[in-house]
């Protein structure tokens, strides 16, 4: 684990990030960009650390996380159950397939005004938007995984005396797990993005709102802070999901 972490590739990968920060610093120090528009990186990260310990900023993070998790959880539950049901039952498939074909490429963010009208400006509309956006990648990859389960796995379980309805939970669900988790990973990143955007478009709290507030007062530093925070949140959540994935898929090849 540690040896992999310090492999030369890691240094190669850190290089461009360091480079970006160096160019950023260079632009400011050599006077190409005024500090008002582009605050130096040291200043931005200092401000980030300073903000992270304040209660007010922690509340913004909490508001964003609540919406993110609620929306993502709804998307996982709906996506996995509809996906499996569509793969298992031809009648459900015949209904779900065309609806998904229509709804998947529809830009869900366009529904946001309608959600605001129907559910109000609070948590409900944002959570629904997150769920609607994260639903389809999860649903589609679940369906894909469940409909490509190796036939002989199912036969093996049936021959061992597993009833048909149990096959769904004992074989199809675990066998589709790699695919489901891939969908969840995409859905999670989308949730991060969407919750932030929804808060930017209209909200009274959350990280997206913090960015908009800063933009209104032209506080460039405070605009960077929520952006970096959501990026870090995304990376941390992605890492956690990755850990869950390698635990759940420990038996699968190339997990």
């Amino acid at each position: 684990m540690m040896s992999r972490f310090f492999s030369p590739n890691v240094f190669l990968g850190i290089a461009p990030i360091v480079l970006v920060i160096a160019v950023w610093q260079g632009l400011v120090s050599f006077g190409f960009a005024p500090a008002v528009l582009l605050p130096p990186p040291g200043f931005v990260f200092g401000r980030l650390l300073q903000q992270l310990v304040t209660f007010a900023f922690q509340q913004e993070i909490a508001a964003t996380l609540i919406r993110l998790f609620a929306g993502f959880a709804i998307a996982v539950v709906l996506g996995v159950s509809i996906g499996i049901a569509a793969a298992a039952n031809p009648a459900i498939n015949a209904v779900v397939r065309p609806i998904v074909r229509v709804l998947a490429p529809l830009p869900k963010v366009a529904l946001y005004p309608a959600l605001l009208l129907l559910l109000g400006f609070g948590h409900g509309s944002k959570i629904t938007l997150v769920a609607a956006d994260a639903l389809f990648p999860i649903l589609l990859s679940t369906y894909y995984g469940a409909s490509t389960v190796e036939q002989k796995l199912i036969w093996s379980a049936m021959a061992a005396g597993t009833p048909r309805y149990e096959i769904l939970f004992k074989v199809v669900l675990p066998a589709a797990m790699p695919s489901i988790l891939t969908g969840c990973r995409i859905g999670l990143v989308i949730s991060c993005i969407v919750v932030f955007l929804a808060e930017m478009i209209t909200s009274t709290d959350g990280l997206g709102h913090a960015l908009v507030t800063a933009a209104r007062t032209f506080q460039a530093v405070d605009m960077f802070v929520p952006l970096i925070t959501i990026s870090l949140l995304g990376l941390i959540l992605n890492g956690l999901l990755g850990a869950l994935r390698s635990y759940l898929l420990r038996g699968f090849p190339e997990a």
């Binding site: 990143v189 993005i193 955007l197 952006l227 959501i230 995304g234 992605n238």
Partner: peptide, 9 residues
Amino acid sequence: VIYPVPKAA
């Protein structure tokens, strides 16, 4: 690092 940043943001 860029992936989870909302581009429109």
